[in-house]
Amino acid sequence: MNSYELNPDLYSTKLEYEPNRKGFGEGLVEAGMNDALVVALCADLTESTQMEPFAKAFPERYIEVGVAEQNLVTLASGLSAVGKKPFVASYASFSPGRNWEQIRTTICLNDRNVVIVGCHSGVSVGPDGATHQMLEDIALMRALPNMVVVVPCDSKEARRATVALAKLNKPAYLRVAREKTAIITTDNSAFKIGKANVFKEGSDITIVACGPLVYEALRAAVDLDRLSISAEIINCHTIKPIDSETILASAAKTKRVITLEEAQVAGGLGGAVAELLSSKLPTHVERLGTQDRFGQSGTITELWKEYELDSTAIVKTAKAMMRGVKK
């Protein structure tokens, strides 16, 4: 029996959509109410990073940095040094894309509790095109010692993750996206950093996914059920530290693993899962994500199809794996 509570409207026409960055914005206000030490810094993107509700609720704790991402994170390191709990937000291409060394030295090596929020991740950013569709951030952040990496699947999980990260007191990266995507979880769903959740149990194949694409995995599972392929869906919202126990247990059962992420598979969730399984439990793994390519302009539907991230691509991959075919 699956104890995890999913949205009851998940497969109905009543399903609602919301960008998960909105959940971050709500979570930040909640974190700010919980703890007066929480401060927020933004680099000229207050509305689209969803820091606006916090800025309105706590203007004295909101710091506009201007278009200066290197300063954004180093200021936050300094604020942390005098006891604050800073959240910094920009588009992921710029932060952590542009300011990686400052994050490495002044936050990770320096062990400062700054939460870096990377918005506009993945190809689902859409019309803005490749420059603004960050795909390498998971790899960049995951490689850093001391860093926690969280990729929430929907707006409700983003809210819970934000509140949890404010209490963590560690360097952390929170990855959110621009587009409206399915609300998969509920206000009562469980969330613990580092603990992946099994969204659907299955016996033939494991799909480990993160971010809004988790919904595509759930849709694929329905299609696979019709083909008598039983897929287990794991929402791996924390990529570092990765939940080895849950992934290994599932892989031991199904012996086939697909990873799914809106990021480069090299170094991303796919990399993390492949690294784990290769040493602990060698298993056939197929990694869905961007395959050493940049994004481009388009709609979310067009782009998820083009980069083989949608449920159709997942079903195709699962069927091939069941036949024993390796890519």
Partner: peptide
């Protein structure tokens, strides 16, 4: 290049 930023963060705090 990142020391003045950190010092500014402390001063602001």
């Amino acid at each position: 290049g990142s020391g003045i930023s950190q010092a500014a963060g402390m001063a602001l705090g």
